[in-house]
Amino acid sequence: MIGEEGDAAADDGPAGDPPVVVKVGGAKAVDPAGAVGDVAHLAANGRPVVVVHGGSTVVDETLERLGIEPEYVESASGVTGRFTDAETMEAFAMAMAGKLNTELTARLRSAGVDAVGLSGVDGGLLAGPRKSAVRVVEDGKRKIRRGDHSGKIESVNADLLAGLLADGYTPVVSPPMAGDEGDGEVTAVNADADRAAAAVAGALDADLVLLTDVAGVYADPDDPETRIDAAATPTELAAVEDAAEGFMGKKVMAAKEALEGGSGRVVIADANVRDPVVAALGGEGTTVERSALGGDADEPGAVEHDGGETA
């Protein structure tokens, strides 16, 4: 469950359309050009948009230039994530909040978007407890790794985002998040960008578009012809979860978290097609509706989801 600061919510766009959160992937195979054009189009037509970006490839490249070997670990729940020690955290902040956020904000402004770059630390935008120790699986054995700089997002400063959107700005958000050390101190820590986007979408009751380098979730991960177009019931959502492997598993996890938080629908779609965001909102990709949660799905925050062991 993601808490919100205050009772702010972004105003709906034209014809009552909810805001849109667009997550732009950080993989080298993802070209942001189409997303930038679509964000400009949506913003020009009055639909509030928040952009959240990742940057795993650039983080790894930054680490390599600094002579640091990137390290990924498997959590006890089977999710693969980055282990972020102190040195890695420095490179992470340089790449994400420094290089990538600035470049994407500049690119959006060049397209006519009044974009404002923010990290999760700014204004306590994304906040939660720091996890300095994580449970991992190494050689089939469960172990505790200490010295990690990661966190679980438990609150979103929706007031900050809603205020910017109301004034016509397009926030461009990236990790790191504000990690609570428990003694009043705040440390910048790693947070997964897909799940950050999910937290923002839930807090704003926004549609979420997760752009990646494939066309959606495939029933057969090796066959694009088996794309699952939609999930509107718990049974259909279970089929999506069963089909999601590797990096896609984390995106489906993020989709559930967004819906549990208040998002009406989530679309996992291809970033590299023409007009990728508009296409996703029009039905391309794999769309997961809030009804797929079943039960109390109409009550945002009714389902609490474990944040996992790694970010």
Rank of each mutant, 00 (worst) to 15 (best):
L259V: 03
V277R: 03
A35I: 11
L293Y: 00
D192H: 12
G246I: 04
A166N: 01
A271C: 07
A279H: 12
V58I: 15
A127Y: 13
E260Q: 13
G112E: 03
E138L: 07
G285E: 11
T287W: 08
P19S: 13
D183P: 05
N101M: 08
D306K: 01
N190V: 05
V36Y: 02
D229T: 15
V267I: 10
I228W: 07
E90F: 06
V79P: 00
V217D: 06
N157T: 13
A292F: 07
P14V: 14
M248V: 10
A311Q: 12
G67A: 04
H53C: 05
E71A: 09
A188D: 05
L108T: 02
G261Y: 07
D60M: 02
D270L: 10
T212N: 04
P171D: 11
A162R: 05
S56G: 12
N190L: 05
P175H: 07
K23A: 03
V200Y: 11
T286Q: 02
L63F: 05
D229A: 15
A115L: 02
R130P: 00
L259K: 11
A244R: 07
T226D: 03
E304R: 14
A44H: 10
A297I: 00
A215G: 15
V36I: 15
V277G: 08
V303K: 13
A231G: 02
D114I: 03
A29D: 15
L281I: 06
I2H: 01
L259W: 11
D306A: 09
R195C: 01
G37P: 01
S263I: 04
G307E: 12
P32G: 01
A279G: 13
T226F: 09
I153D: 00
V58C: 00
A244S: 02
G151Q: 13
T286W: 08
A201C: 01
A111M: 05
D38N: 07
G128H: 12
A43Y: 12
G295N: 09
A188L: 12
D183C: 01
G307Q: 11
L164T: 12
E64D: 11
A279C: 09
D296L: 13
D167E: 11
V22R: 01
P300T: 09
P19R: 13
G246D: 13
T102R: 10
D180V: 12
V39H: 03
A29C: 11
P221M: 06
M177I: 04
E154Y: 14
A33G: 08
E236T: 03
G67E: 07
A115V: 07
A106Q: 12
S110R: 15
G140R: 14
A97T: 13
G216S: 06
